[in-house]
Amino acid sequence: MDIQLQEVEYRYAAGTPFERLAIEDVSFTIPEGVFLAVVGHTGSGKSTIIQHLNALLRPTKGQVVIGDRVISAGKKEKNLKSVRKKVGTVFQFPEHQLFEETVEKDICYGPINFGIPEEEAKKRARSLISQVGLSEEVLQKSPFDLSGGQMRRVAIAGVLAMEPEVLVLDEPTAGLDPRGRKEIMDMFYTLHQEHGLSTILVTHSMEDAALYADEMIVMHKGRVQKQGKPRDLFSQPDELAAFGLSVPEVVRFQHRFEALSGMKLDRTCLTIEELAEELARAKKRGEDR
């Protein structure tokens, strides 16, 4: 399922003295199966955009095409459940949405709302709980007895249980410790690859964008400023700096090395392994000469 934003504008509190423009003239396509990273500073409009992807917000101008549904300005749509079933969203600090008596019931809440039979929902809960790195006995516990990191995983399982075709992630690792961050991102990446999900990751971490994304969008002041492959965008650090954004540590290191040595590596490296490989190659070239 593709998602398309066409000249989308959104104003909060339109028509009151408190009106505020959040995004304007935003157009891009999320083709099926892509891993898209959306980067930009707080207040750049990232969060507003993702609320358009499952029709939580209706544009004040332009339209959003989600599969075969069109959400356009000024037209009230009915029965948006079919859209929301296909687009699962993990919001920032998703543990805040937990409410049921047991973890199992909480995970089943989404699927049951979308008409999945209880037995099937429970089956999904059982298989998901280990996928997010928790043991099955957690299922019968109250979510409020878990640690913060565990609650986060339960909340994520609750979204995955809807078996969405598109997964939207808003800073899913914020506030976690380094190990937790890596485990959760790796899990999303595996899911993305195994199930061919489209994944939209909103993040401040250029490292994550470099590691996981196929495509990247740079937001600034409510507009899409850049769009392209992470490798291409990161090879022009000055352009990103104009939007107050940095490049991943690996890339920064490579640029420093190139500036000092006057050499140019064959490609912009996105992982530490790539960088080591390129450096070794450059060194070998030097020795052969």
């Binding site: 410790d177 380094p178 690996v250 530490i272 080591a276």
Partner: peptide, 18 residues
């Protein structure tokens, strides 16, 4: 469950590559 700074990680890998 902690992390180490990028230069430390990179040094480690580079040393493996002689």
């Amino acid at each position: 469950g902690l992390d180490v700074p990028f230069p430390v990680k990179l040094s480690e890998i580079l040393r493996l590559q002689d």
